[in-house]
Design a protein around this nucleic acid. Structure first.
Lengths: 107, 107
DNA sequence: TTGACACATACCGATATAGGCATATGTTTG
DNA sequence: CAAACATATGCCTATATCGGTATGTGTCAA
């Protein structure tokens, strides 16, 4: 069996380095596709396709302006990723706390 | 071309739901492969292969004990995630600040 | 030593994916 | 309306990946 669809979840969407590059360049603010193409030296269709994936998971939003399409970040959609990460950091902290307690007990 | 190698990229490594499942089950602490197999009802080779990927990106560590191999989380390797995420939260906060300023100006 | 056990690895088939190229769609300008 | 521009989409190929089955490797027990 092949991999599961990347379009279905945020984790898979940010798994691709090119897509992270695109998100990075959008940190600078709303941009038309052409600007991303120039910034990253990627082909236009490639950028459009990655933007489509990012759109489908909601990480970017699109707005038409004339013949341009302006894409912008939708950082709120990183919430699932944030929650996931926090879960692990929590576990780490708990573990460290336990070590602390242990060390304190030794004294 | 296919996706880039999951073995080199931490983000790609957690792109797979099964691997996230494995990490989740390791939140409970160090476990031998067999326990993961039981927990997740996955085949043993499948688990071993995913563990290999997770090892290669450093997200888990392995320790032999008798004929068992105990795997545990390596929370330090979550750093790239935290750094990446922080970048975007920054952007989000900046945007919220701007909205605040705007609303204040309206009053 | 032999067998049972725990795990890793090799090989294979099926499939989704990334990227390239060509083209369609929609918009502005002349 | 026609031509230029910006972007999206369809088709194609190559390849990495996932999962399965079979087998290899190392460890303990009798």
């Amino acid at each position: 069996m092949p991999r599961s669809a990347t379009t279905s979840d945020v984790f898979n969407a940010i798994g691709d380095a090119r897509r992270r590059d695109i998100l990075d360049t959008l940190l600078g603010g709303e941009k038309p596709v052409g600007a991303i193409v120039d910034d990253l030296s990627m082909s236009q269709p490639q950028v459009s396709k990655h933007l489509r994936v990012l759109s489908e998971v909601g990480l970017v939003r699109c707005r038409a302006e004339g013949r341009n399409r302006l894409y912008r970040l939708e950082p709120t959609r990183l919430q699932p990723f944030r929650e996931w990460l926090t879960k692990y950091e929590q576990a780490l902290n708990d573990r460290l706390d336990r070590v602390d307690d242990y060390l304190r007990e030794l004294q």
